[in-house]
Every structure is written in structure tokens, then in C-alpha cells.
Design a protein around this nucleic acid. Sequence first.
DNA 1: TTCATGGTTCGAGGGTAATCGAACCATCAT
DNA 2: ATGATGGTTCGATTACCCTCGAACCATGAA
Lengths: 244, 244
Amino acid sequence: MKDGPDISRVAALVGDPARSNMLLALMDGRALTAGELASLSGVTKQTASSHLARLLDGGLVAREVQGRHHYYRLGGADVALALETLLCVSERRNGSRTRTGPRDPDLRRARICYDHLAGELGVLVYDRMISGGLIVDEGSKLTVTPAGWAALDRIDIRPDEIPASRRPLCRTCLDWSMRRHHLAGRLGGQILKTILLKGWVRRVPDSRIIRFSSSGERALMAWLPPQPSPGRNSSGGRVPGRAG
Amino acid sequence: MKDGPDISRVAALVGDPARSNMLLALMDGRALTAGELASLSGVTKQTASSHLARLLDGGLVAREVQGRHHYYRLGGADVALALETLLCVSERRNGSRTRTGPRDPDLRRARICYDHLAGELGVLVYDRMISGGLIVDEGSKLTVTPAGWAALDRIDIRPDEIPASRRPLCRTCLDWSMRRHHLAGRLGGQILKTILLKGWVRRVPDSRIIRFSSSGERALMAWLPPQPSPGRNSSGGRVPGRAG
DNA sequence: TTCATGGTTCGAGGGTAATCGAACCATCAT
DNA sequence: ATGATGGTTCGATTACCCTCGAACCATGAA
């Protein structure tokens, strides 16, 4: 009778408000302590501990113990993706009921999704990289073109500096606010790391929001391939000359 | 404190085994009656009715009344996507614990996801259509190329025959068993409809499984563009010629 | 050692909701 | 009309689990 794995188990884990708040707080990819997660989700330490134990057992979070601090991190990129898709559904269903706070526009503009850039700017980066020929969708996977590596080299991202892992290099992630794809995977993480390091963006404390400095946004736009002209589309898909 | 919409509400709806069974049963895109859903999920009519009312209120399913029969269908493509991603997570987390039944290989091979083709063959169709240049990822969206329309015309799919709606024509959907993309959207639905009509595949009753007839599989392969690289090349992803 | 801090474990209380029996309503067939 | 079938509503029972107070364990500091 059961088709696949027990989907209700993980869904029930996300189904509690306290736990979902914790998970959303971890969406920025940072590892938070149990105490921080407790106060963030509005429950006592004991309750939080119980919830975290369940999340850990279910594999939705991972724990790292440092001294007397227990750091919790999201269980993986797939967990982040699942949360984003759930956000997608929630948004559509009771979106009208939810009042949008003042921070929402910033959140839509640019935010951290697990470890990479999301929001309008995240989608924009992905779009430009695709239309500019820096990455191509080969069906089975996204790959970086030679022109792409050349462009990445200009912001000091080189293949040998991206940590190796079983995780795919490029991946797409569905965007909750835009309902479009943006760049995830190791490369997506590396890009965010880089623009943070370069000071193009800075994080807003205790939130997923990231804010571009005006010079940073200019620098990003200068790095990205320009928007293609609206007329002819990809069949000729040449990499813009400036990139080479 | 709340970032976005109340994600825990929808997650809690999926979090009950009876409800998740119902939702998974609806993943094939068909509309089932309340009674069928009751027996499928293993609860009485009364319980099922209560669950369905909740799902309806949450927008996860839609109801259509015909005579004394109440047909329930999935609330939308985004709901199907969310369920697939949750399947993805569940698979990874407690996949080893779940014993794989005999039907699983068939389910992995080809199944219905909402209204389109999924599984190995679904991914294969998507891959070939991308690598063969029938559809292209323009970043913001997938579009069908002129060559793509010509190919689709050969299996009697024409632009004016695809029902208009706000739903995107082409969309990708993450595959639970393959963890890769396959073709969704209105075009994905139309393709499935077509190959069902042509008798290339037939549905296995009371499941999401679809089975290709041998002639049907040959016909599909004959229609699809051939695989680009000569041998099976799993790791050394070759960039298609025109990107360079 | 002694104290303080961060986390977990235990137990009890309380509320939500899943479940089913029974009754009720609507539709179709005879 | 009368009966049969498909669904929903109501009420009561039951079980789960969320929550927190209190106690307990581990680490770091004085």
C-alpha cells in the first residue's frame, strides 16, 4: 500500500510550529546553538531540546558538539529545498491571510537559502549565467562552460578551490518568493561565500536577509553577462564577446 | 519573528499518515472519490471525510462534485512538487529502513507525477529533449524551439491544441527516485496524454505506475533525438558543441 | 573544589486531533 | 414512494505529543 518512504514522518516533523521555526531559522545555512534556537522559536530549553532530538533522529538537522555548545545545522541541501517548496505552497494557499511585514521586501530581494543566494537577485544571477552561456543545462545536470570558468576566475573562483564532495557542483533550487530557479550546489555556495568575502553584500543579523552595498551591486552587475536583447533567443546562444 | 507564510500548517496536513496516503494516491493526477480515498488510506469514510475537509480547507486538494460522487484531486502542480521533494527527503533519511517492495522497480522506471511522466523514462525524455535542442532553458523559463515544435508535431502535439491556462507551458519537476529534473507544465501533461492515447503506455490500475509496451518504448525512442555522446558517459560531462 | 552556564532527561499536566459508531442528508435506481 | 449507495455531521473516546517545572549531566571559569 505504501508507495515510497514514509513521507508523513518528515512532514509531521515540519508540522509543528516550534520545529518549523527552528528549521526556517537554519535556512541561512549557519549552525545555531540549542539555546538560540529555543529563543528563536519561542519555547523553553527543555522543549527545544526535545524537538531538536526528534529533528536529529529524522535527519532534518545535523549536530556538531563544540565544548558545551551544541550546534545544529540543516540536515542537507535537500532539506532546504523541501522547506522552500513548502514555503511555495504555503505562500499560495494562505498568502493573502499572511500580513507582510516590513522586512518582507528585503527578504524577497536577496536572502540566503541554505548556503547560496536566493530571492530576486539570486534568480537574476542564475538567469544571466544561463543566458550568458556561463552555465548550461545538459538535461542530466548543469555544467560550467569554459567561458563560465573564465568569468568565475575573474572573481577568484577556481575549480580547485571549490571543496570536493559528493554534492553536485551545480544544482537548481526552486525559489519560494519568485517561483523560479536559482543556482545552488557547491558552486552556488562558493559564489555567495565569495561575494560576502569581497564585501559586495553583508548579512542582516539574525535573519536570512542579505543586503547589497551600492558598490557591491554595481560590481555584481558588471561581472554578470548583460541581459540578452529581447528579440532573438537562445538558438544562436553565443557567449558574449566581452566574457572571453 | 515569522519569516514567511505558516509553513507548519501545510506540513502538518501532510504529516498525518492517512492524509499523506491520500495525497500520494492523488499524485497520479486523477480525481478519486472520497470512498476510494478512504479505502486507499485505510480509514473509515467518516475519518476520511474529516481529513478531506481539512485538506480542502488548506488548499492541498480541490473538490469537484458530480452527482452523489465527490471527486478530489490534487490542489495544484506546486502541491505535487512539494510532495515529490518530501519524498526525496524521506527517501534519503529513512530509505535504508524502508524495505523496497516488488513494485518499486516499476515505480522507478516510469510513473505519473501529477499529470506528467516521471521516473527513469521521464528523466530520459527530458534529457533527450534538452540535448536534442527541442527545448532550451533560458534561465527564466523553458521554451520550445522551432525544431521542438516540429518534433512535437510528428506526434500530433500542436501549440493550438494545448489548453491555455496561467500554468506555464514548460516547467521542470524534481524527480523523487532520480533526483533529477523531468518535464512538467502543460507540455509535460500533453505529452503524457498523447502517449497514453497512442497506446505507447498503459496505466497499472490503482497505482502511479505506467508500463510501456515494447512497441511503445520503441516508438518513443524513435521519436526522441538520439543520445548525443557515443558511449555512456557518466562523469566526464561533455559540453554540447554549440556552447563554447 | 565550587560555582555558573549550556543541554538533556524525567515526569506530570493539558490540549489537540485522530478515530469510529450512529445518525443524517443527497442522489440514483426500482 | 422505497430502498440502496455515497458523503457528511455529531459526539464520545482515546491516544498522542507539546509544554514546562524540576532534577541531572557536562563543560568551563574562579
